[in-house]
């Protein structure tokens, strides 16, 4: 199984050059059955990454481009009267797909945002009184521009919390960028990308992640981390139990990807920034963007041995 994962990471690496860390984080998020939020400037490869993941993991894929006039029905689907049968027929929306890319989620109004976020949480959609389950597995990869950019509706804390991880892609390094500039169009490579993991294999991964051993020492460490966010004065508020659980699950996935049978503190540390940054806010910061500094401080303040 680890070989398959390794192969997947490598093949994704050919699309998104020099971003192995982010690829692994995205996979860890999927293995933990969580949704992923990618926050970065336009043109950094957010869409490319999600499309590549869909192809590599052979998932059905739909993309919703969020705009300010998008309505919930545009996401969930709508019933239309069929003249021939004389009945209303449900036309499912783009959300009925195993991997949904919600592009630029903060461009749309809160009403449409919450339609998506409800579906993410419940993994089912209720339209006109009929509840329809979403396909299995179901992942949402949402992308957003930094909140400070014009024309954005920032997601509130409660909705950010629905995303297991938030990652940033960042600029590629010079070598990777050179390859990008020299090489052929990424879209062509993407079109040729072979599926490296089947749905069954993905489910096996998700099941095996749950078998990863977590020792008391690691649980102590996680609890001390969480406790620190609740006590230290620079944190506006602490991590919720859901945040702690998210941290634990992601650490498990990470250690699985790293081919270990048990979680070590380094696994927790590797996923911690992506898991907690969007769940924390600095006490002195009212715009809500001090999370990454807080995560770094958290790592250097709490020791692995308590």
């Amino acid at each position: 199984m680890q070989a398959i994962i390794k192969e997947t990471i490598e093949s994704l690496g050919t699309i998104l050059l020099g971003k192995e860390q982010q690829i692994k984080l995205a996979l860890a998020c999927l293995f933990s059955k969580g949704h992923l939020l990618i926050e970065d400037l336009p043109g950094m490869g957010k869409t490319t990454l999600s499309l590549a993941i869909a192809r590599a993991l052979s998932l059905s894929y739909n993309r919703i481009q969020f705009t300010s006039d998008l309505l919930p029905a545009d996401i969930l689907g709508v019933s239309v009267f069929d003249k021939d049968s004389g009945e209303f027929v449900f036309h499912s929306g783009p959300i009925f797909s195993q991997l949904v890319l919600a592009d630029e989620i903060n461009r749309t109004t809160p009403k449409s945002q919450s339609a998506l976020l409800e579906a993410m949480e419940e993994r089912q959609v209720t339209v006109e009184g009929v509840t329809r389950p979403l396909p299995h597995p179901f992942f949402v990869i949402a992308t957003q521009n930094p909140n400070t950019q014009a024309g954005t509706f920032a997601l509130p804390e409660s909705q950010l919390d629905r995303f297991l991880m938030r990652i940033e892609l960042g600029y590629p390094d010079a070598a990777a960028e050179r390859i990008l500039l020299r090489g052929e169009d990424r879209r062509d490579i993407l079109a040729r990308l072979q599926s490296t993991m089947t749905l069954d294999e993905l489910e096996t991964c998700q099941a095996e992640v749950q078998q990863i051993k977590v020792s008391d020492a690691v649980l102590d460490y996680i609890q001390r981390l969480v406790q620190h966010t609740r006590q230290a004065p620079e944190f506006a508020y602490g991590l919720s139990p859901r945040g702690a659980l998210a941290l634990l699950n992601c650490a498990r996935s990470w250690s699985y990807i790293e081919d270990r049978t048990h979680v070590v503190p380094e696994d927790v540390q590797a996923v911690l920034p992506s898991v907690v940054e969007h769940r924390l806010r600095e006490a002195a910061d009212f715009s809500g963007h001090g999370g990454s500094a807080l995560a770094q401080r958290l790592l250097t303040r709490v020791d692995i041995i308590g």
Partner: peptide, 27 residues
Amino acid sequence: VDRNYLRYCHYLEKQGLPRQIGEGPED
């Protein structure tokens, strides 16, 4: 086990290699 490990860290610290706060054993 933690006590022993810290003892080992202490030896290394005396050699000018202190373990940082929050630094995992493998790192």
